[in-house]
Amino acid sequence: MNIVVLVKQVPDTATERKLNADDKTLDRAASDGVINELDEYAIEEALQLKEKHGGEVTILTMGPDQATDSIRKALSMGADKAVFVNDDALHGSDSLQTAYALAQALGTIEYDVVVLGSESTDARTGVVGAALAEYLGLPQLTFARKVDVDGSTIRIQRQTDYGYDVVEAQLPAVVSVVEKINEPRYPSFKLIMQAKKKPVDKKSAADAGIDTARVGLANATTETVDFDAAPPRAAGTVVKDEGDGGAKIADFLVEKKFV
């Protein structure tokens, strides 16, 4: 079973994140780039599926030059190879354009399952998996907290507000995962060394079958009009508990009419 994992490089949430003043896109130079956290769970799930069912795990990343760091990390977890779609024409693409571009790039790869994190920590839209399924015309098995494959049938537990839905489809399918699904492995020294030799197929937008008139900031379906630092919260009151901390909070809640 061949599996493609979509991996996005995002700014490290532990560092300060900024937008570019000129084009209002993410300032990727301002912070360290790391693999989007939920994508590590996607890689782990792909590796577990490969361990059970055989096949190959391919990483598919779209992004600027520095995204190669995240690709190496993904390969060092145990993925077999990578496709890196890297083109200035893609800069500033919004979530739907990204889904379109990834759908086109997937057309150049053979796969049975596409796995991705259910959302990224930077834009946090949570729509790419669904939009990708729409573009590809494939079953949408998103927000999975458990995945089982039996022959050509795939079954997931889809996380919901009330618990979960069991959802079933025929392969190929698009699967997005939530944190509960597994515990991502750490790369071993041996795998890190091996990863340096694994093939990374770099593609331009044209190589990936992407129509550049449909992607990039100039063709985006949405536009950031302006942005500003959020006003700081007014400083609050902090007291040390002297045995009456609970009562003091109750006073505050009464004052604010919550009680």
Binding site: Q140, L141, R158, G163, D165, V166, V167, E168, A169, A173
Partner: peptide
Amino acid sequence: TARVVERVNEE
């Protein structure tokens, strides 16, 4: 293509 076969309430 993606059929809901069961809804489980864990609320």
